[in-house]
């Protein structure tokens, strides 16, 4: 949430600069070298990072007057609900659509905003990364309810509104990758990470989903599984959707313990 002052109006720059600088980390292609380029654009109120990038794209000339290639980044919904435009802005992973220039300048006290791609995923070009592995993780934990079919079988199980709201909080995850970027345990895809654990939890909480809990927990008990969590709790702090990630990890660990116990009893 943006900072607001006593009048509940957005806290804005008292003396906004004429121009602002964007320092952008460039990379031509996967595996290529990185370099920095600085662009200068006129300051406008209500500018967000995406609008600034759109400006730069139209006429990509660096601050020192050199014609260059337009920076490449991903964008789609621009309402912080699709997750695609995530990048590292002034050192923090977040969506570029909801990163407002005034807030960034106020926080940094400078006229420069630094944009980098997320560092934990293959960097396709400039600010664009490939997060395919996050979707693969969802397969690994069977993040779905097993249905007999999509034909009409009437309503599902009755569920309390409390449970529905608890599940809704997990279900808002947009697979943006902020949690993995912030996680000190996650490198080179060694750990399945908080998002997949929370999605497993989402379905383990569902009356029908619960039936196949074993498959989901199996997906979390391998070498890249839940035991990699070092309890740094960075994930829950950076999650733009406030998904209760640490709660999911805690509850899933409990499920695994209970399941192991009952599994043993079944033998």
């Amino acid at each position: 949430m943006s900072e607001t002052n006593g009048h509940h109006e957005k806290k804005r720059l008292d003396n906004p600069p004429q121009t602002i600088e964007f320092k952008i980390q460039r990379r031509e292609k996967l595996g290529g070298e990185t370099r920095w380029e600085v662009f200068e654009i006129p300051y406008r109120r209500n500018l967000n990072v995406i609008s600034a990038l759109m400006d730069i794209r139209k006429n990509p000339v660096t601050k020192d007057g050199r014609q260059t290639t337009p920076p490449v980044w991903d964008m789609s919904c621009l309402e912080q609900v699709c997750g695609i435009c995530t990048m590292v802005i002034d050192g923090r992973a977040r969506q570029s659509c909801s990163a407002l220039v005034d807030d960034l300048l106020l926080a940094s006290g400078s006229n420069t905003i630094t944009l980098q791609p997320m560092s934990k995923f293959p960097n396709v070009r400039d600010l664009k990364v490939d997060r395919t592995r996050m979707f693969d993780h969802l397969k690994q934990v069977h993040a779905w309810v097993e249905l007999d079919g999509s034909h009409d079988l009437g309503p599902g199980a009755q569920i309390s509104n409390e449970t529905a709201q608890e599940r809704y909080a997990f279900s808002r995850c947009m697979t943006c990758g902020c949690c993995l970027e912030a996680c000190p345990q996650y490198f080179e895809d060694n750990y399945i990470g908080p998002q997949a654990i929370a999605q497993a939890r989402l379905f383990n909480m569902h009356p029908t989903g619960k039936i196949t809990i074993d498959e989901r927990l199996d997906g979390l008990m391998g070498e890249d599984g839940i035991t990699n969590c070092g309890n740094a709790q960075n994930c829950v702090q950076v999650c733009p959707m406030s998904v209760p990630l640490t709660k999911a990890i805690y509850e899933t660990n409990r499920d695994i313990t209970v399941n192991a116990l009952f599994g043993w009893l079944k033998k």
Binding site: L153, N161, Q165
Partner: peptide
């Protein structure tokens, strides 16, 4: 109803509908 079965967290009534 199908989306309900798929696990969409629809808001519920006090009866759980």
């Amino acid at each position: 109803y199908l989306f309900d079965r798929m696990g969409v967290p629809f808001s519920r009534t006090q009866e759980g509908l």
